[in-house]
Write a protein that binds this DNA or RNA. Structure first.
Lengths: 151, 151
DNA sequence: CTATAATAGTTGTAGGTTCAACTAATGGCA
DNA sequence: TGCCATTAGTTGAACCTACAACTATTATAG
């Protein structure tokens, strides 16, 4: 129903990003669900860095995912409710929570890896690698352009 | 703080789109706010097609913005609460609402146009036009790749 | 050492998204 | 004509996001 020309004609950059972002998020969750896994893309985004580092403070997670501290709080709330992570108070700095994966969290992480890979392939289907490179480059530039100097 | 290489190294496609999308949305709202205007990017996305066509059903708005009918319902709720649009029952098909702009809605639309333009320029700063073209092309392809064949 | 600023995290409010279940109206087919 | 499927829109629940105001802890400047 939607061909490439009409999409580009009717939609500006913001709307295109908005739609592509929602489509990817939705497809990831659908693919996870088909594999019997219950996880959102944002939960996955947070899980990754914790796995990579063994643990991470909420501040560090926010920095790595470019997420607001409020969002991190609530995502960790959800992950904790699902018994995928635990908040452990930092012994040195009592303001800080170290967030670590439970065994269930580690298991889920491994289970989701192929789902992520499948989604990635569906997203990139029929798009030349060099265009993907430029695409990622432009995204990075946009993020940097808008990073909060604000003035 | 975030340079292009480290962004691309640490973040995958989904996270980059996610972050860029949020950054754009945020900047648009900030710019509108600085001009004394109170509007979200999603509200703007819906206002545009109504203005273009004079009126539109919620179904048509969803199609044009690639938004779920639930989202459209709630955005129209908000716009109606702010007296920017009105739902008018369609005389021929009683299932349908025709959504039209109030005078305040038209005024806001015109006021926001330069804000949109400013945001667009901030987003595209230092990015070559030909890269932007490829970028939009890739976004369209992704949307089409993920359009709900699902099977 | 103490007052003050900065930092980590939480909470409330409001808006946007998805899914699923629902109402109301229309369309089509026997 | 009457049953049934489809379509337009709404509602509730759960999650994510941003902003602002708040608590608690740590760092710093005088």
């Amino acid at each position: 129903m939607a061909d490439k020309e009409s999409l580009q004609f009717h939609m500006n950059l913001g709307m295109l990003i908005n739609s592509a972002h929602r489509a990817m998020t939705k497809r990831f969750v659908q693919n996870a669900h088909e594999s019997g896994l219950d996880i959102s893309l944002d939960q996955w985004m947070v899980l990754g860095p914790i796995w990579q580092r063994g643990d991470a403070s909420q501040k560090e997670l926010g920095d790595m995912c470019l997420k607001d501290k409020t969002s991190v709080t609530r995502i960790i709330d959800t992950l904790e409710k699902k018994n995928l992570v635990v908040r452990v108070p930092d012994q040195l700095d009592h303001r800080v929570n170290r967030v670590i994966l439970t065994n269930a969290g580690k298991q889920l992480f491994y289970d989701v890896l192929p789902v992520m890979e499948k989604t990635r392939e569906e997203v990139k289907k029929n798009i030349p690698d060099e265009d993907i490179e430029i695409f990622k480059n432009v995204l990075s530039s946009i993020i940097i352009n808008l990073e909060n100097e604000k003035g």
